[in-house]
Computed example of a mutant assay.
Amino acid sequence: MPRNPTIHPTQRISPEFQDRLNSIIKDKECTKYEFSSLVGVSKEVISRSCLYGIIPSLQSLIKIADYLNISINYLLGKTSNSNFIKSECNVSFHERLRSLANEKHKKYSEIARKMIFPESYFHDWIRTNTLPSLDYLIKIAEYFNVSPDYILGRTDERD
């Protein structure tokens, strides 16, 4: 199984995300290109997201959400709650993942049995200090019953 899932392009398209991003840019009273500079994401990525609803990489989503001080779920259009409280601690995805696994007294092998990817991915993410794809992140967050932002260390609010 690939480290980043090969998903049919229509599954990476979200009208909710497209509408939310277009609305945000309109509220900021700037162009897509100005917005891309503000958030530090390429013009092409913002343009594809606005025109077709293509969800960018997790790293791009984080940059946008960080700039706007909103949750990933709000940005994706999965919630209408725009309240977001940024974490006061600088906790990484890797630290949060270890903490959640310890809290549940689970080894990565036990967690992996419930996931759509092998245990080795957990070790790879920690060893290489990288992040999973959005799809994998969402599966891990669901397993631990926390928000993607919590597991990323962006907030200390679990839901």
Rank of each mutant, 00 (worst) to 15 (best):
P132V: 03
T31Q: 04
R48S: 03
L152F: 13
H105A: 13
T130V: 00
D124C: 02
N90D: 15
I151A: 03
L134F: 03
D149M: 13
L131K: 04
N22K: 13
L134R: 01
S71P: 15
I151R: 01
K28N: 01
K32N: 14
K104M: 12
I116C: 08
N90E: 13
S42W: 00
K114C: 11
Y33D: 14
M115E: 06
Y150P: 10
S99V: 07
N83M: 09
A141K: 07
K43G: 03
A141V: 02
N129D: 07
R98G: 01
N90R: 12
D66A: 15
L38E: 10
K43Y: 02
Y136F: 11
A65M: 14
Y150H: 14
A112V: 09
E103N: 14
S47H: 06
C50F: 13
P2D: 09
L134S: 03
F122C: 01
I126R: 07
S120V: 08
D19K: 13
S109L: 00
S37C: 11
K26A: 12
Q11R: 11
I55K: 04
T128S: 08
L68G: 10
G77E: 04
D27I: 00
S23F: 15
S92G: 15
P5R: 00
L58H: 00
N102A: 05
Q11H: 11
P5D: 08
F122A: 00
R12K: 12
Y74Q: 10
